[in-house]
Simulated assay, not measured.
Amino acid sequence: MSRYTITVTSDGRSDEDAVIGYDPPLRTFFLQAFPDESGDDLALWLGTSDREYETVDALHAAGRAKGFDFMPLPDSVALSLADDLAKEADRPRHDGPPAALMRHLQSD
Rank of each mutant, 00 (worst) to 15 (best):
R103G: 04
Q106L: 11
A33R: 13
R13A: 10
L31A: 04
G47R: 14
L26F: 09
E16H: 11
S14N: 08
D11F: 08
F68I: 02
S2W: 12
A99P: 12
E52V: 05
T48E: 15
S107K: 10
V19L: 15
D41S: 14
D36Q: 08
V8N: 09
T5I: 14
K66A: 08
P97Q: 00
P25S: 07
D17T: 06
Y22T: 02
D11T: 14
R27S: 06
D15S: 03
A62C: 05
Y4R: 08
D15V: 06
H104R: 11
M102N: 11
L81G: 03
P25M: 09
A18W: 07
L105V: 10
S2Y: 08
R64E: 06
I6W: 08
D57Y: 00
A100Q: 12
P25L: 07
A61N: 08
D108V: 15
V56C: 00
T5R: 09
L73C: 05
S80G: 08
Y4P: 00
Y4L: 12
P24C: 07
R13F: 09
D57T: 12
H104D: 15
D36P: 04
V19P: 01
D50K: 13
A43N: 04
S14A: 05
T28Q: 02
S14R: 13
M1D: 02
R64W: 01
T9E: 09
S2V: 08
L26M: 09
W45T: 05
R51H: 05
Q106R: 15
D69G: 14
D36E: 11
P24Q: 13
K87I: 11
H60A: 13
H94F: 09
T55R: 04
D50T: 11
D57V: 01
P98N: 02
L59C: 03
P97C: 01
R91D: 05
D57Q: 10
R3V: 12
Q106P: 01
P25F: 09
L42H: 11
S49D: 15
F68T: 06
K87H: 14
A99N: 05
A86L: 08
